[in-house]
Amino acid sequence: MAQAAPSPHRRVTKNLLVVVLCLLVGGAAAFALREPSAPEPPPMEPVDAGVPTGGPAVPTQAPKVPKEGPKVPIREVRTARLDGAFVDPRMPRRMPPGPTFRPKNPAVWCEGLSVERCGSHREDCEVGVYCDGVRFCRSRPEFPSEESCAAEGILGANVACCSGLVARCGVPTRGHEACDPQKGDASEPVCLRCGDGVCGPFEQACNCPEDCATSEARPKRRFQGPWPRDVPPEDVAPKGTTTPGQCLDTQASPEGIQRCLESWSEGLFGLRDSEALQHVEDLKPFTPFDVDLLRCLERGSSYAARRSEISREGCIEALYLRTRDSRLDKLRWFSSSYGRSR
């Protein structure tokens, strides 16, 4: 008896089961035979053919900034200070207050009085003078000074400058290209020790040219900042330093070293940049190396211009090649962004 042929529905179901079984077996075999891919080889460092043999290698790629690196303690850098607070060493000040309190008299408005009438109210008013010589009336301070003369650096005093001092005006314009005589405004003269051959902390070329102005005939001058020479006041010099040369040892970043050197320059000479230091007659305790390092740190960090001395990196590299000072190793190719990350 002939066997009945399977129905078309059963044949389709059987074929589907066979296909599913093959897929499962093939997938399992492929998973078992699969091997992990080999790691990619590390990128080869390109060779810079432009570096002479025996010289320091110049990187051709920007330095990588580590996400987490060792924490280098940054020492605190203190700038020039007077009386415990930050001041510009060339900023004049008013007369010091006296011990006796003077109550205000609202019935007298000194600022509205003429100079002639100002003298009739000496308990409340005093006469001042502007840089252009015009006299004016103003109220006396609540604690009037008892000084009989105005000391060096006193601004707009109502008494004469002390012996050996002169009242002067004048400040450099923005960019230091010219001088502003400070006439026609509310500026007042400052008592200065002009004529002693030293450019003091309150003096500059515009108000004391005989001491501070340089020329081709006399390119160098004696400068004096707010610190006594070689003996900075306690807790004023950058922490951990007794000379400017120690800034490179105690600071961890280019910015820290620059601030440290500027603090010493400002405290000793009243100057803040390497160009101005070129005019100092006696640089001690600064050394030519300290000034050259400050000049390099003043330049902008540029990886693109790293071969040129116009950049911080190129200038420091040239300084290293000239001096072979191993302390510069931490600054070579040390970008400002990398320094801040540490």
Results as ranks from 00 to 15, higher is better:
31 F>Y: 08
214 T>N: 01
239 K>M: 15
92 P>W: 03
69 G>M: 14
327 R>E: 09
251 Q>V: 08
49 A>H: 12
27 G>R: 05
288 P>H: 03
74 I>K: 10
340 R>V: 06
326 S>H: 13
341 S>W: 09
101 F>C: 06
139 S>F: 09
200 G>C: 04
219 P>Y: 01
74 I>Y: 02
90 R>V: 01
225 G>W: 01
115 V>P: 09
223 F>S: 00
24 L>G: 15
203 E>H: 02
217 A>D: 11
191 C>E: 01
111 E>I: 10
252 A>Q: 14
126 E>A: 08
261 L>F: 10
297 L>D: 01
43 P>E: 11
217 A>K: 07
141 P>G: 07
338 Y>S: 11
201 P>D: 03
175 G>V: 09
255 E>G: 15
17 L>M: 15
163 S>H: 07
102 R>D: 05
277 L>G: 00
10 R>A: 13
297 L>R: 00
133 G>S: 10
246 Q>L: 13
158 N>R: 09
213 A>R: 14
227 W>Y: 07
207 N>L: 12
100 T>P: 01
31 F>K: 07
14 K>I: 11
121 H>Y: 15
287 T>D: 12
250 T>S: 13
221 R>E: 01
180 D>E: 08
311 S>I: 04
281 E>L: 09
194 C>N: 03
164 G>N: 05
66 P>I: 09
114 S>W: 09
30 A>M: 08
72 V>R: 15
22 C>W: 05
177 E>N: 08
57 A>W: 07
229 R>V: 12
51 V>M: 06
329 D>A: 15
